[in-house]
């Protein structure tokens, strides 16, 4: 682990460290990497990697059926305030509003993000 590698890793992880932070981080990472490297002592020739502990299950599949609109399933339509007269359109908009409530910035139901380069 060195400065160049740290910089590259920061870029990949979309993090930025100040110069002093970099020094400390480098030390910590070096210590951790040394700890990691102990596993290289083990002979893993012919050993199959174990990424998920559940290997003997069958396929987990979902039927190709549209899920109930969240508005109905989670009772969000009532929150739309339209009460009894809520139309299908209002349902959909209520669902959207609830799902996008945490968005930092919206415009006509679209997420607003900094300009991307295409």
């Amino acid at each position: 682990m060195d400065h160049i590698l740290l910089d590259r890793t920061c870029r990949l992880a979309e993090l930025e460290l100040s110069e002093s932070e970099k020094e400390n981080m480098l030390k910590d990472l070096e210590n951790m990497v040394t700890l990691f490297e102990t596993i290289s002592e083990l002979d893993t020739e012919g050993v199959a990697p174990l990424s998920g502990v559940l290997e003997d299950g069958g396929n987990v599949l979902r039927e190709d059926v549209v899920a109930e609109t969240a508005a109905k399933a989670e009772g969000l339509a009532a929150e739309a305030g339209a009460g009894l007269a809520a139309s299908a359109g209002a349902d959909v908009m209520a669902k959207r509003e609830a799902l996008l409530r945490n968005a930092p910035e919206l415009q006509d139901g679209l997420f607003v993000v900094p300009k991307t380069f295409s």
Binding site: L5, A13, L15, D28, M32, V33
Partner: peptide
């Protein structure tokens, strides 16, 4: 991400990315 995550989280993200 740098301001939203604390030091330990940033450390582990960097380790994992590496």
């Amino acid at each position: 991400r740098t301001q939203g995550f604390g030091e330990e989280v940033r450390r582990r993200i960097l380790l994992g990315t590496f």
